[in-house]
Design a binder for these strands. Structure first.
Lengths: 121, 121, 121, 121
DNA sequence: GTGGTCTAGACCACT
DNA sequence: GTGGTCTAGACCACG
């Protein structure tokens, strides 16, 4: 996953999305310790304050928790992660359907087109 | 349809997309006369040259044709329009699948989620 | 043959060329009487003076001759017409070779390409 | 090669043709870096935007590609260049045959005339 | 410095 | 009035 930002949305928002992705896909597994804010910020080439803000957001959602002394960890609550995964999926689905409707596709047609599209490796 | 531009992509590109949408959805039916370059430009609040560029692009694709004195017209070639509609649809599908894959959804799962999503009016 | 002028060269020059063409191709056969200057001018939608100048040029070349009372006639000298035909042909050939040379084609290659080109009806 | 424009066709079209010629003849070899838009424009004594338009056209055809910061380059695809050379050649041939036909020459005769014409240095 | 985009405003041909 | 072209000049992102 690359750390490229779009300028369209605030950077911290994009950081939240990328980190959610890593959690949801298991790249950051439940219970895993995250790198330090400073290291994550350096890796993403953003200001530490920006990264801090993104992590606070994740903490707010209950996706990560911090222990004063030992750092930040991904939640062990698998259900929460699964729920996030579904929520994000549904958002994508909703946007997809909206865009297809703009093109004049009803859901059935969109689904049909989906079936005939080859899946990449 | 609103004329709001994102700054992400060049304006003329976004103009092309909006106009394609209008053609594909039949808002501009085959054979219909478009407003003049100047009028369309005024409507979209862009420079006439920018609108001209977008229209030239559409002309290149064979979606519209221009007659010296009487204006620009949507192609009467329904197959071409249908092909564009499918192409645009496939692009959406491809991007959707890619995004879902990022979330760890394979196509079958994505399709399943699609089926359970209520379709808006 | 249409009477469309290019603006590139003087109109009377273009008239000369068109009339030469008609003579060379036999559309105006040897000895044939030409329409009056006024009629020809009307047909070509040019000023009679312009047509007059073109005809004078043709007369200078000996391709047409005028009889005071009865009008203008195409020369009966078949050799002269044949010579013109060849001269015009050679001019085309020369220009063709020059253009092909610009593209990096030597004569043999140009001739080869010529052979493989289908002749239209 | 001189930068003289005919007024018959748009300047940017003529620019495209001249540049194609330079590519096809190898004056701009495959992979070669073109001068900057501004320099080429100055050389041809046209507005940079006009030259830009011509270059964009060439880019559309895949004859050149641009790299954000370092400039424009001739394609390395020799086959593409060869194809263009042949296409341009065929166009000349077709026009030549059409003109000869106007003079009453069939292809065989035109070819014969071609053979007897001295090739210039 | 490079390419790329956009605006503003003018002029042309065509009818 | 229509589309089309051209110029002039500005601004941007990328390195």
């Amino acid at each position: 996953m690359s750390w490229i930002f779009s300028g369209e949305k605030p950077i911290y928002t994009q950081l939240v999305e990328r980190l959610q992705l890593r959690i949801v896909t298991g790249e950051y597994p439940p219970g895993a310790r995250l790198s330090s804010v400073r290291d994550l910020a350096a890796e993403a080439a953003v200001n530490p304050n920006t990264m801090q803000r993104a992590l606070a957001e994740l903490e707010n959602m209950g996706l990560v928790y911090s222990q004063r002394t030992s750092g930040r960890f991904v939640t062990e609550d698998g259900a929460k992660i699964a729920a996030l995964r579904e929520q994000l999926g549904r958002e994508k689905v909703r946007r997809f359907l909206a865009e297809m409707r703009e093109l004049g596709y009803r859901r059935a047609e969109a689904a049909a087109l989906l079936e005939t599209e080859e899946e990449e490796a």
